[in-house]
């Protein structure tokens, strides 16, 4: 699916603090799992994309830690943690 207009810029307004490791990972072998494809629609930050081979890829930068992908896709396809203490998004308004 094509990139959503202006979304990158919008995420660029938020304060993010870098984490050592991505806090959400697609479990190996699950890239084409139909459950994972739901993430493309539900992620408010548009961080999941389906590539030409039908695999879903995740870019963790810009993650709002909302939890939607964990609920939509489940923990069989995603390894899901919160970022380490002090890392990740830091809302100034919320």
């Amino acid at each position: 699916m094509s990139e959503i207009m202006g979304l990158k810029a919008k995420l660029g307004l938020d304060v993010f603090k870098h984490d050592k490791e991505p806090h959400i990972k697609i479990k190996p072998g699950m890239e084409k799992d139909p459950r994972l494809k739901r993430a493309v629609l539900v992620c408010p930050a548009g961080l999941y994309e389906e590539n030409q081979d039908g695999e879903v890829e995740l870019t963790i930068d810009g993650c709002l830690e909302c939890g939607t992908c964990r609920i939509a896709c489940g923990t069989e396809v995603l390894e899901w943690y919160y970022p380490t203490g002090g890392a990740g998004v830091q809302f100034r308004f919320g």
Binding site: M1, I4, M5, G6, L7, R38, V40, L41, V42, C43, P44, A45, G46, T68, I71, A72
Partner: peptide, 19 residues
Amino acid sequence: GIKDLMEGPAAVQAPVLLD
């Protein structure tokens, strides 16, 4: 609702709704 968002009616990426 997350279920409606992932299954329909009418597929749309969440951020598009707000735009």
